[in-house]
Design a protein around this nucleic acid. Sequence first.
DNA 1: TTGGAGCTTAACCCAAACTTAACATATTAA
DNA 2: TTAATATGTTAAGTTTGGGTTAAGCTCCAA
Lengths: 227, 227
Amino acid sequence: MKKKDIKILLVDDEPDILEIVAYNLSSEGYQVITADNGADGVKLAKKKKPQLIILDVMMPEMDGIEACSQIRKLPELEDTIITFLTARGEDYSQMAGFDAGADDYITKPIKPKVLVSKVKALLRRFKDDTTTSNVVKIKDLIINRDEYKVIKSGEEIILPRKEFELLSLLASKPGKVFKREDILDNVWGAEVVVGGRTIDVHIRKLREKIGDECFKTVKGVGYKFVV
Amino acid sequence: MKKKDIKILLVDDEPDILEIVAYNLSSEGYQVITADNGADGVKLAKKKKPQLIILDVMMPEMDGIEACSQIRKLPELEDTIITFLTARGEDYSQMAGFDAGADDYITKPIKPKVLVSKVKALLRRFKDDTTTSNVVKIKDLIINRDEYKVIKSGEEIILPRKEFELLSLLASKPGKVFKREDILDNVWGAEVVVGGRTIDVHIRKLREKIGDECFKTVKGVGYKFVV
DNA sequence: TTGGAGCTTAACCCAAACTTAACATATTAA
DNA sequence: TTAATATGTTAAGTTTGGGTTAAGCTCCAA
């Protein structure tokens, strides 16, 4: 998802805060929507389905905590990140905020740079950021090197380390034939000496778990992942 | 973020400068990477993603200003701070530098004390600022890094330091597998050497206090916090 | 000084992961 | 066709890495 597709809903009754925060987030490229009270905030949230909601705690009409609870009741917004704006030291608000389902909070006074990096961090955490993460998608497989797991047509498959690394290697260049020697170097390490059937056994297990058709033997050379 | 996690890229063609600056920053605990020309500097910046880049203005191959412009074009480095090294009184360079996207400049001749405090000041905004909370909510846990406490479904749990930091690390990126090595670097510190079972024992205690299901072992790799 | 909390170590156990060996089957060269 | 070579398959070993426990160490505060 691109930045300009990300909607941030900002709810605060103080026009100054609204302006400064909206300005900073807009100039980062986000779409900013604002409301100046909790009730409108909830309505807008329903309508616009933002990815991130920044809620002031203290507001007339409906305070942030109440707004947060209401938003959390909406199933279509369960993936939305909610963060509070709160004056430093208001411990009570923080606790109540978390109980109401907030993910984080930002304390006033607001420093633009900090605000922006916090927003980025929050959005990063909840998004599948394919640019920075070690995730490879191929056929019906999603190979996630960070989490050491494979998802095959929606279903999670846990592979032991060697199998995972072997799959990971082969899938890193689909179609390329990896020589047995290369495989040993990469998965086992250059120094390690293992018997002649070890690779085959691991390939066999992958064929069993991932699907026979994915792994093609090239006799006298090695194996490749076919697409 | 801890000091030892902060990478500073230093680009200068004069070996003497490289050495003196690198020495002073390293002994402050920062990770210092060096390059002796602009082209290499840009390459290293891409690869290592430092938090701070110190660029000499006058260099063969590619000067600092050109390097700065190139770095500023890379979206993944938009949060990186860039500062120039420039001879006293070169007004022109300073101006051009800011146009190219620099954040500050340091004048030669370099005085170590001044350099170090300048670097610290620049990095300060990168570290957790007082306006940002150090509180993270995940599952039924609220992890409060300021107060070193954890709240699990409303109940406060006090964890000893190592346990807290271990939890804090794992929960910082739910799902990601942290290698034993990474854990040691982050929680114990890169230099510290401890026996092979130490991490396990701490994990065990966390499992006891926080819940077994939160911590998944990935054999031969490490541990992850599962959501 | 003593006690205790936090941390590390050591010893043991177990199961998953890995390797091997033996044989089966397939492919290629002669 | 036959022999030689390479890979497939299985199940039985082996090894490795993590789990568990309790004891020891170290620091700090009463």
